[in-house]
């Protein structure tokens, strides 16, 4: 009698499978990696240095590279997981998977695990380009807080991606829903532009309600050259975690494995 494959092996297979599908999907790779990288290079060409005080100049990339690393990570989790899961459901791939002995939580674990691997790769790419091309500085003493903040952030945004797939009616509406929710919030969240100095009240509110600014600010704290003392931001981390819990609840209540009745089957992949 053969033994059932172990959960760990199944999970590793699933992560590898999702990674492979991502690598072979040009559009997903573009929006997740090339898009933030394009912004990084564009900002790098536009802004050079910031005079903090007379005679003290810091590379502008010190401020926006961590933010764009967060943006790449959120694209790899929230956007990518939300869209690819909704498309997989439309195509009946989720239903097919549900008919195999693979435990459902391992499939979901593979989706989230793959999203986190991609997020780490995307963020590392932004920061490496930031260091090599623009000379941003990082105090290695902050490595542990930076990693922990990052893991909490991508875990929460993965759950929000699953929530997005749960509420999107089809694989065709998921990209619109993802961009319509992410981009406006990104403008209020210190990603593309800094809203640190006296932003309009509504913009500040938009940033404070949603978790992206909390993630960007908590991660930036680990790169802030003027910060003294602990770089942990407990209040921001709690806000990120709360959104993760909300995402998990929506996923738990609303997620289905079956294509919508009368919905498109075998639809072409578009992003």
């Amino acid at each position: 009698m053969n033994k059932r494959p172990s959960s760990l092996k199944l999970l590793a297979n699933q992560i590898g499978y999702q990674n492979r599908r991502f690598r072979r999907n040009v559009m997903a790779a573009f929006f997740t990696l090339a898009f933030p990288l394009m912004f990084l290079l564009l900002f790098g060409a536009l802004f050079e240095g910031v005079d903090i005080a007379p005679g003290v100049e810091v590379a502008a990339a010190q401020f926006y590279a961590p933010g764009l690393a967060v943006f790449a990570a959120v694209s790899a989790t929230y956007t990518n997981i939300g869209i690819s899961t909704a498309i997989s459901r439309d195509e009946g791939i989720l239903k097919r998977t549900r008919g195999t002995p693979l435990p459902p939580w391992i499939y979901v674990g593979g989706v989230v695990g793959s999203g986190i691997v991609l997020a780490a790769f995307g963020a590392a790419l932004m920061l490496t380009v930031g260091v090599l091309a623009y000379g941003i500085e990082f105090d290695w003493a902050n490595l542990v807080p930076a990693v922990l903040t990052f893991v909490l952030g991508v875990a929460s945004f993965s759950l929000l991606g699953l929530a997005l797939a749960s509420v999107a009616s089809s694989g065709q509406s998921a990209p619109a829903l993802a961009q319509a929710t992410l981009l406006p919030v990104a403008f209020a969240s210190n990603i593309f532009i800094s809203v640190r100095n006296n932003p309009p009240a509504w913009l500040e509110l938009l940033g404070d309600v949603f978790p992206l600014k909390a993630f960007a600010d908590a991660f930036f704290a680990c790169f802030d050259p003027f910060r003294e003392g602990s770089v942990y931001e407990p209040w921001l981390l709690a806000r990120i975690a709360a959104w993760g819990v909300l995402g998990a609840l929506v996923f738990w209540r609303k997620f289905t494995w079956e294509p919508a009745v009368g919905g498109p089957t075998r639809s072409r992949r578009r992003r």
Binding site: R20, N25, E91, G92, R96, G99, P103, R269
Partner: peptide, 19 residues
């Protein structure tokens, strides 16, 4: 899982990973 281990399902509307 023990039950699904012993059956095979061929449905009409299930797609295949194009990648």
């Amino acid at each position: 899982a023990a039950f699904r281990d012993r059956i095979g399902i061929v449905l009409q509307e299930c797609g295949i990973e194009r990648e």
